[in-house]
Nucleic acid binder design. Structure first.
Length: 106
DNA sequence: GCGTTGACCCGAG
DNA sequence: TCTCGGGCCAACG
């Protein structure tokens, strides 16, 4: 089922600016409820200069995934802030406000 | 081709 | 409320 990647990438690409989605949500919307982990795998495999807004994909509690909890995270956080998403230095954000409904309301 | 790892999530103790 | 463990499946060695 290599189509899983396609589904995930497509959904991530549809996330509007200033909105974020959780791994579980992406996986669920893609049609694979329990495969949030593979979502992370897919994103992890993405090239450095990709157009995909993988940065808008966060954990369930509303925390940025990021790589090494360090510099990589700051890069993602800064990028999100540039899009209008309020993110703390710890990578935490308000899901209630920025959670993507799944609708392309860009 | 097999074993291990992993940007996670959820239920149970 | 917090911690621990199981489970899902793809990428990597």
């Amino acid at each position: 089922m290599s189509g899983f990647r396609e589904a995930v990438l497509s959904l991530v690409a549809l996330i509007p600016r200033g909105r974020v989605a959780t791994y579980g949500q992406i996986a669920l919307m893609a049609g694979f409820p329990r495969r949030a982990r593979q979502v992370g795998m897919v994103l992890r495999c993405l090239p450095t200069g990709t157009e995909l807004p993988w940065q808008r994909v966060v954990k369930t509690p509303g925390q940025v995934a990021a790589w090494g909890q360090g510099l990589g995270a700051l890069m993602q956080i800064d990028r999100l802030r540039a899009e209008g998403v309020e993110v703390s230095d710890s990578g935490e954000l308000d899901l209630e406000r920025f959670r993507w409904n799944g609708e392309v309301t860009a």
